[in-house]
């Protein structure tokens, strides 16, 4: 599956004021490619993701999905702060996507179980989210998206609220999940290290209205490990990304 965003613009009205969130954003995501969207906070990264998810309709432009589909949902989204329903058990939450697609309860559970076990959530199936640690909650949120086996995975700063160690662990688990079920990913983050560790490409957006400012290929081979962080070419790439991001952030701050 290939995702094509063409000239996506979006203006919304908040308290009678028109806010231009996105202006003419165009980019492509190739099959099995992980594209990280970086940008200053409030630049419309999440808005762009919601447009791709079909949650928001762009004022201009369009999002196209090219490729074969065999009964899987087009997209699934991993939300910031997990977005688990507090009133559902972990199992109900994880199988929510399947439930919405009309899959029977028993086969829902069957399909989810392997992933639940992999994530170490086996003994928490009947627990409610408030009984889980924050890392466990985010794991469940991640699994919920993977269980539906979407054609395209959308991730909205999924690990932003985690502590540094938990974040590293979950990033690694995410890469493993993705290795077994390769698919295109659009990954919104504001963390440069994270975007280089996880992505094949980095797209830097400008401050509001969000426009594509720069597009970097990440040359490092997979599987990647944390040792990458020590390499001089990592630092070099990080420096170049930061340069673009800094300019974008400064322009944003001056507005």
């Amino acid at each position: 599956m290939r995702v094509i965003c063409e000239d996506v613009s979006l203006t919304y009205t908040a308290r009678g004021r028109h806010v231009e969130a996105l202006r003419g954003v165009s980019f492509q995501v190739r099959p099995e490619e992980v594209v990280c969207l970086l940008g200053p906070s409030g630049c419309g990264k999440t808005t762009l993701l919601k447009v791709v998810a079909g949650l928001l309709r762009p004022g201009r432009g369009r999002v196209e999905f090219l490729g074969e589909r065999d009964g899987n949902p087009l997209t699934a989204m991993v939300f910031q702060d997990h977005g688990l329903f507090p009133w559902m058990t972990v199992l109900e939450n994880i199988t929510f996507g399947l439930e919405m697609r009309g899959v029977e309860r028993t086969s829902r559970t069957q399909r989810a179980l392997p992933l639940i076990e992999t994530a170490g959530l086996g003994q928490f199936q009947r627990s409610y989210p408030h009984e889980l640690s924050i890392g466990m909650k985010q794991r469940a949120g991640l699994i919920r998206a993977f269980v539906t086996n979407p054609e395209v995975l959308l991730m909205d700063e999924p690990f932003a609220s985690l502590d540094a160690q938990t974040k590293l662990v979950l990033q690694e688990e995410f890469l493993l999940l993705l290795r077994d079920r390769p698919k295109p990913v659009i990954y919104v983050t504001h963390d440069i290290d994270e975007s280089i560790l996880l992505g094949d490409r980095i797209i830097v957006l400008t401050g509001r209205p969000g426009e594509v400012r720069a597009d970097f290929d990440i040359p490092f081979p997979r599987p990647r490990s944390l040792n990458l962080l020590q390499r001089p070419d990592f630092a070099d790439l990080k420096g170049r990304v930061w340069k673009e991001l800094e300019d974008a952030a400064r322009t944003q701050a001056r507005q």
Partner: peptide, 8 residues
């Protein structure tokens, strides 16, 4: 949004 995104 979660519900909508999963097609509810």
């Amino acid at each position: 949004e979660v519900a909508q995104s999963y097609g509810a």
